[in-house]
Design a protein around this nucleic acid. Structure first.
Ligand code: SF4
Ligand code: SF4
Lengths: 158, 158
DNA sequence: ATAACCTGGATACTAAATGTCCTGAATCCC
DNA sequence: GGGATTCAGGACATTTAGTATCCAGGTTAT
């Protein structure tokens, strides 16, 4: 899995502490000391996926496109890592016994179904958790996180 | 995910149709027209993991090390793809606010916990399905699969 | 003894992830 | 309008992981 997923998760949580404020890629990157240009690519992907909105120009930057309660972890994973399943079906049955090129063995093959069922539970679990849930749980263990995050962003020079 | 996982799944199912018979890597590869030497590496990994047993020399080959009911899909995935989670934790919090090198943020971080919970359901689902389950489901849709598989293996020249 | 087969390391090849750079367009401020 | 700031995105370069081949060494059946 793309490590940009982790960056995106944390950035979205941070952005949820800064509602209505446009934060530049440079500042988001500086927060965790990440490569700016590369993080910018992930932010672009989130924007294309409709998770963030972006504004060009001075005072521009990124912010959450909708309520954190409506952004699931699955949304982010799909936006950054793509919609493909981890288990790749290379259709080896086509080289096997009943070789019928017209059949899509992805649907028929029992192995494929079994792996797919596992990935389904995975996605369901991710879809059941939102950025708001994450943020809330962070607050419950360290209640000053939102304030200190805002403070840190305010003090970021670059 | 490693595509060897797919090869391993199908090979294990095939081997479950051939109990007590040692099948050479060359024949297992020929069944799906796979690269012999590379498939052999996956079979070695399965052997190291205790899923297969191997015998050297003429009349040698691989066979299941235990009852197909006791081989879960998770066993195979771990043997081929390794035990690591898909979500990689690069510990970016160490570059962040509270930077404490002594803390293992993998345990503390809420994002990490959320992703981990999803992977847990994934693994649980995989662990709940065995090679025997797969084989049984194949039989229920095409009852002649075991016989035709044995027949095809018997007719493989190389 | 020979041939077949597994083991594992070395190596090559290929694809994907990671990271950088640069041009162009949008926006703000003077 | 002009300059500065920032996003958008394409074009690379670099690094890492996956895929594939080969060979030398050990095991076993005949
Ligand atoms: S569908 Fe089944 S047989 Fe075909 S490639 Fe996927 S796993 Fe293998
Ligand atoms: S533990 Fe949390 S913060 Fe640390 S790297 Fe993993 S996801 Fe990021």
């Amino acid at each position: 899995m793309n490590e940009g997923v982790e960056w995106a998760m944390h950035s979205c949580v941070n952005l949820s502490w800064l509602p209505g404020e446009a934060v530049t890629a440079k500042r988001l990157a500086a927060f965790y000391n990440l490569p700016t240009a590369y993080l910018n690519k992930q932010l672009q992907a989130l924007t294309r996926a409709g998770i963030l909105t972006s504004v060009s120009g001075p005072k521009g930057g990124f912010q959450l496109a909708r309520d954190p309660q409506k952004i699931t972890l699955l949304d982010i994973v799909v936006a950054i890592d793509g919609p493909d399943d981890a288990f790749r079906c290379t259709q080896i049955l086509k080289e096997g016994p009943g070789a019928d090129p017209k059949v899509d063995y992805t649907k028929v093959c029992v192995v494929s179904q079994a792996m797919r069922s596992a990935e389904l539970t995975y996605r369901r679990t991710l879809a059941g958790q939102t950025i708001a849930d994450i943020a809330e749980r962070v607050v419950s263990t360290s209640p000053d996180a939102p304030a200190s995050t805002r403070n840190r962003f305010a003090n970021l020079k670059s």
